[in-house]
Design a protein around this nucleic acid. Structure first.
Lengths: 238, 238
DNA sequence: GAAATTAACTTGTATATACAAGTTAATTTC
DNA sequence: GAAATTAACTTGTATATACAAGTTAATTTC
């Protein structure tokens, strides 16, 4: 977009440090540069740096030790879908890929939708699509997503294959996921889900329904997920 | 304890507002007093108030709206065990009770314990106990807990029935839970768990393993939980 | 009376600074 | 050379202040 994009400093610090950790420049047990060192690097004050470090701690990247420093946490080995990071999988040889089963299409909200919608949302309708996620070519997660159809021109024609929904929303529409809530059950897979995940219907799976808020107050992201945790447990920090 | 206990102001603000929300003085959709109003009430500055409000937002009690205020979130209707709040259940008629199946006893760590222990922990041994939780007299959650046996005199003789472990640790030992991590699976209940939860062994349940850090760096809390989510889904905000 | 504009609120981002409390390294003492 | 003490680091809590940006109420204009 032609309008110059402002990136707040504390967010840049978050992204910079997150990248370094994810790339392996800082490993489990390493200390990040001290708050004072980071102040010098970014020519800023401790309040700004501390806000960034606090966010990284909340996301599980680091642990703060009084008097010692910010210690890099153990990388996740499980499937990370319980937070705002989008779907992640532990480092190592494992490869997460995504295929689109139902391309984004505009539609009305289903009757008896699993979350209560407000009037703006009801009137706007939604964009629906579904994805199947694989770890090392084994299907592990099926996800149906409804997004409030507000401020999303040309979204239906975008390709989501192997791309992050959150990143597409951010890069193309300036939409950032801010917070969310979720409900979790253990269920038996029905015939459709067991076919998709390549498991028996007697197999227990984790079922989640999530509602995510974004910086666009009219636009929410609703997901219904079915996850086979036999080989890949879900993992979360808090 | 005879030593005068310092309560930091931002923590007092958190506890005060949390209490008011939990008591229903502020309801879903209500606005909390503005940051400036709270500054006047507590004779402090916005940085301190904002730190408290940020913590409340992270725990899912409020949602922050730029230019509008702090809005009280919808109370949870599900079973809250996915965060640092200890076990909670939604408001309403539902009643959460706890019975102690295995009283706290000192023991060595089990072989092949489900989390990797450091040397201090291995040497210290642990305190083990188990609890069964009921909602309206229906068993829904079985939990086995190991706590590093450090700085916990007389813990084994304490009664945990219908009491919060976190509160006991805080009030009697100044131990506060700070952060944690968890792994989640959907599994079939084995014979023992199905008997405890009063379900069939073919029944899918949520299984979790958690490791919690405390302000005492030598003392961690490890839990293994089995939860029947048929009537009571797990609920979480982030 | 409706629409546009302005004012007064709110939270968000940020600078500057000080002291408390925990950790580790350097120094001193014996 | 070991133990005790001190110094220099770290993060934690807090005050003070300013401006940006979003929301809502009040005022002005037509």
């Amino acid at each position: 977009m032609s309008k110059k994009e402002v990136v707040h400093l504390y967010k840049k610090v978050i992204e910079d440090l997150k990248s370094l950790i994810e790339k392996g420049e800082y490993k489990k047990g390493d200390l990040l540069p001290s708050e004072n060192d980071l102040c010098r690097s970014y020519d800023t004050t401790r309040v700004t740096i501390r806000q960034a470090l606090s966010a990284l701690a909340n996301m599980g990247y680091i642990t703060r030790k009084h008097g010692k420093g910010s210690i890099v946490s153990e990388p996740k080995t499980g499937l990370g879908i319980l937070s705002l990071s989008g779907v992640t999988v532990g480092v190592g040889d494992q490869k997460l890929t995504t295929s689109i089963l139902q391309k984004p299409t505009k539609q009305n909200w289903p009757d008896d939708f699993f979350y209560q919608l407000d009037e703006i949302e009801s009137d706007a309708g939604c964009i629906f699509f579904s994805r199947l996620r694989y770890i090392d070519n084994v299907p592990v997660l099926y996800e149906e997503t409804h997004i409030t159809n507000v401020d999303l021109p040309h979204f239906s024609s975008r390709s989501l294959e192997n791309r992050s929904l959150f990143k597409i929303l951010k890069d193309n529409y300036k939409i950032e996921v801010k917070e969310g809530e979720q409900k979790i059950w253990a269920i038996h897979a029905d015939k459709n889900i067991s076919a998709l995940l390549n498991i028996k219907t007697t197999h227990p799976i984790v079922h989640m329904k999530r509602r995510l808020q974004t910086n666009n107050k009219k636009l929410r992201i609703y997901s219904s997920l079915y996850c086979n945790t036999e080989e890949n447990f879900l993992q979360d920090s808090f």
